[in-house]
Amino acid sequence: MVSLLDAELRKLLGLRTAWIGLLVGFLAAPALVFVSAGSTRRAIAEGLYTDSSDLGFQTLGIGVLGAMILGVVTVSSEYTPTGEDAPGARQLTTTLAAMPRRARLLTAKGAALTLVVAVQGLVTTVATLALTRLVHGSLVPSPAPGRLAGAVLYWVLIGLLAYALTLIFRNGIVTLTVLVVNTSVVSVSYLLTKVTSAAVYLPDIVGAHMFLNEVGDHDVAPVTAGLVMSAWVAALLALAGWLFGRRDA
């Protein structure tokens, strides 16, 4: 299992697109702290923030894109055609020749992704919160360790969600489009919460309750949020694993 994990880490970190994911994850949220500093300061002065402890954590949302990209490319790179001269040829063939036990392969791949995304999530969360304190000083209370852990867990679960969805769709573009549009342009999940309160328990919405005090109009306890999002991700991973085991490569 160690050699499989070693191979999957090398594969992931040897991809250019993975480095885009890494850089986006590392840089986007800290950069946003600076970019939005002025407007945030005004918002605080006007009393728009009822809970200023959310400040740094809210900025993290954009960095999660990095985790999504990593989750997607670790699978989509297997399905990318290797060249024009052999349209059906993909890296997946080599992967399965080297690691033919599919459940073990998916476990190793998921573990490699979790490792990379957890480090990214931890570093980015700490950096973003520290910068927020630096920029806004005593306006922002010092972050609770539990919320920090919640943010990192959210980061990892989003990465695994993207991983599971790409395994199901076998296409990175579809998965990434759905996920990115839903996080950055129009949050369909968020709009759904306006229609039915059950939508509060959709994976991306509910997970945010792990580290944000104010998400939409509903309150979900952080531990409940963590459990619900983990259950979503576990269910999707189980479905993805079942499909991957059954399908021809």
């Binding site: 050699s3 070693d6 191979a7 040897g14 790179s77 290797t82 040829a89 080599t94 080297a98």
Partner: peptide
């Protein structure tokens, strides 16, 4: 086994491709 194509992701160098394959089987 040698099947269709190189079996390597196009953005990887030959060396880095073979290194992960070697790692996977110790």
């Amino acid at each position: 086994a040698l099947l269709d194509g190189s079996g390597a992701h196009r953005s990887r160098s030959a060396r880095s491709h073979l290194r992960w394959v070697a790692a996977s089987n110790g």
